[in-house]
């Protein structure tokens, strides 16, 4: 039941990750995450109108499925968990 927040891009170009054991979260939050990921993968393509360069992007990984964070409709509890995870991001060594 591992939920992984992945930060990629940015000027440095290095991936950061934060992990959370979802089984330690309330049942309702677990169910909310499972519902989100049961819909399958969605791919975020940078749109021509997105002129951000070197801005970091976020995605969430659960059960082997990766979803761009900006495509997920989160409830308040998941938003709080993501905010906590953003504070715990560590660089992934290469």
């Amino acid at each position: 039941m591992k939920l992984t927040l992945i930060q990629s891009g940015g000027f440095v170009g290095k991936t950061k990750i934060a992990e959370e054991d979802l089984s330690k979260q309330p049942q309702a939050l677990q169910q909310h995450v499972q519902t989100i990921f049961s819909k399958g993968p969605a791919k975020a393509e940078p749109s021509a109108g997105d002129l951000n360069r070197d801005k970091e992007t976020y995605s969430l990984e659960f059960n082997g499925t990766n979803l761009p964070l900006n495509t997920i409709r989160m409830n308040d509890d998941l938003q709080k968990l993501i905010a906590k995870m953003k504070g715990n991001l560590k660089y992934k060594k290469s």
Binding site: S8, P46, K93
Partner: peptide, 27 residues
Amino acid sequence: PDLGTDPQPATMSGYVNDPSDNGGVHT
């Protein structure tokens, strides 16, 4: 100690397809 080693290739033999960074634009 925190970042590991610079992953940039110098030639096409090291080209990577990294979906997490728009196809590895910074690599």
